[in-house]
Nucleic acid binder design. Sequence first.
DNA 1: GTCTATACAGCGATAGAC
DNA 2: GTCTATCGCTGTATAGAC
Lengths: 189, 189
Amino acid sequence: MNNNKNTSELILDTAQALVQEVGFNGFSYAHIAEKVGIRTASIHYHFPNKEDLGEALITRYHREFVATVAQIDTETQNSLEKIRRYIMIFSIPVDTYCTCLSVMLSSDLATLSEAVRERLAGFFTANLAWVERVLEQGRSDGQLHFQGSADVQAHKILASLQGAQLLARSFKDANRFTMIADSLLSALT
Amino acid sequence: MNNNKNTSELILDTAQALVQEVGFNGFSYAHIAEKVGIRTASIHYHFPNKEDLGEALITRYHREFVATVAQIDTETQNSLEKIRRYIMIFSIPVDTYCTCLSVMLSSDLATLSEAVRERLAGFFTANLAWVERVLEQGRSDGQLHFQGSADVQAHKILASLQGAQLLARSFKDANRFTMIADSLLSALT
DNA sequence: GTCTATACAGCGATAGAC
DNA sequence: GTCTATCGCTGTATAGAC
């Protein structure tokens, strides 16, 4: 599987896993090098400095998010099912008690470059816009029910999922995430 | 104000502000030393290593939380008002676009000692227990209304507040927090 | 209880050979 | 594109004087 990937992608895969485990300031080029099986100087060839690496990580993450929700949109027209599948994106890292890239970068925000901060905000904006659109569609369908604006509701859902990941991680208990996620879904019907 | 505090407390105040800004791995003894106006060696006298410092931070944080909710309990018997004041605890760091200590430590969990991890889980357990108790009381009063168990609802509230802090921070927009917090409150009535 | 001085490991990053 | 070798800096931590 990984044999098909070039070195840049292997570096990004490894770096992303490390960010999700220990945060952007918790790992070094040496950690990546050891896992990939190369030397630190080789990483600097692909990503001259750690800031470049951070930018590449969030850019790829955003791109993959766009592709994922586009696939959800093509595979189902059911708003509740869309939200269910959106929530599933967040549930994957919980099994390893890791937190998704965007939550970790939010925490590390103060130590990141302005470029990474802007892209992170852009990623969240894309999340909120997609969820808000699905909520509005579902409400006009009569399938989804919630108080207040779809904008506020989208914020609540995103925030709850982020917090749910942190709680699951702190308790080393994936059920804490599932519990919250299920409740979010059932509250919409 | 700070003149009354001894060096240990000044170190803890400074360290906590730094954790909330840049995370546990984002600052060094040198940063604390500069802000307090002492040398790094003096910090090691009070907190031999960084792990000791982390333990002292979360222990003090938990103690202050217990005192705060005890005060809330004595000052009002109104369940909705209790939740409102609980939410206010989380809103304070948002104005500086910092995240509360427990959220930052959750993110940095993988790099913390087992002792700190246990105390962090204990802090969240205390949070959930208090909120759950208030929710149950409010529901039996007929003042609060929500679907499902008070346990799940407490998890949702705590998770939402944590995520709301991260979103406010990422967008540098305290209103994102307020919006979510207000919606949490109005959903309970 | 705070200081100076220092040890030593790890960090990001670069030069230049291959 | 990857390597060896190395630089300069910062990190945590300690010894010992005051």
